[in-house]
């Protein structure tokens, strides 16, 4: 009895704010609904149109894949590298740690506004590139470079992963390194044979979170690109597309269908990630 009382806030929240809307959106995805008049049942028509006749959907899907496929591994590699650096005993170690994590604390909207200036055709980034003799692209204005620009922005937040990796790194037993040293392993060999395997659970955690986050990219696109997803949909992603369909074009049913397809995509990738864990993620408890 008390169990249900205590669990009820969560239960009610789940039913009202999660399960209910999910069922509703599943129903809506099978209808055509302009949000004003009653929905009309269209069966699977929305899904058929999306998958067969909507070039923008495929473009957005491809863009989202592109973004996730580069930004997630890049963020992980960078996080790992930074964590490793921060783990060294150097002067000002604490200050460096703070500096690396600081960008993660800046609200995304503020960061995006700053990047709008940084990424201007003659902005600081291109000036920097100019010093080394590269004439930088027009980033956000160029359909070939707007996605890399968004990836650059995503790397800005690598500090979040860094902190988790660093914490895990500190938890690796010193004996392992000492033993390796006695056996004659150099620092590089130690990094690959001890640090990385010991960190795999955290890397895996960051991978899954990163994937989910990357597939749901919205604010950056919404703030940085004008029109949203431009130029010519070359930075259109799944969630901004969904938002447009629902709130600019009044195709709520269609937008719901997109959200379910996005759900399916994320589910598949997360499951794939879990499937591969056996091959590379190392859990100490399993060795026993």
């Amino acid at each position: 009895m008390w169990f249900y009382v205590f669990v009820s806030p969560w239960l009610v929240g789940f039913l009202v704010f999660l399960l209910g809307p999910m069922i509703a959106s599943l129903y809506l995805s099978l209808t055509e609904w302009d949000t004003f008049t009653a929905p009309t049942w269209v069966g699977l028509q929305n899904y058929v149109t999306l998958l067969r006749d909507d070039p923008v959907f495929w473009k957005a899907l491809w863009n989202t894949f592109y973004y996730a496929a580069i930004s997630v591994p890049l963020g992980l590699a960078l996080g790992l590298w930074l964590a490793n650096l921060l783990n060294k005993q150097v002067r000002g170690q604490r200050a460096f740690r703070t500096l690396i994590y600081l960008p993660t604390l800046v609200p995304l909207v503020a960061t995006a506004m700053i990047f709008k200036m940084v990424l201007a055709p003659s902005g600081p980034l291109n000036q920097l590139l100019g010093f080394v003799g590269i004439s930088g692209p027009a980033w956000l204005l160029d359909s070939d470079w707007v996605k890399p620009a968004l990836i650059v922005l995503s790397v800005w937040g690598a500090g979040g992963a860094t902190v988790l990796l660093l914490a895990a790194m500190r938890g690796i037993p010193r004996e392992l390194y000492e033993a390796a040293e006695v056996d004659g392993a150099g620092p590089i060999r130690q990094f690959w044979s001890i640090t990385v395997p010991q960190l795999t659970p955290i890397i895996f955690f960051n991978l899954v979170m990163g994937l989910i986050g990357a597939f749901q990219i919205f604010s950056q696109v919404y703030i940085l690109t004008k029109p949203v997803g431009g130029p010519n949909n070359s930075s259109q992603m799944m969630v901004p597309l969904l938002f447009n369909e629902a709130f600019s074009f009044y195709h709520m049913g269609y937008a719901s269908a997109i959200s379910w397809l996005l759900f399916a995509v994320i589910l598949v990738f997360t499951l794939l990630a879990f499937r591969t864990t056996r091959k590379w993620v190392f859990y100490e408890t399993e060795v026993g």
């Binding site: 999660l18 999910m22 969630v239 629902a246 759900f263 997360t270």
Partner: peptide, 15 residues
Amino acid sequence: RRGFLGFTAAAAGVI
């Protein structure tokens, strides 16, 4: 649960 949460954010508008 994460997957579900993920979907939720995507469909926030609908909700």
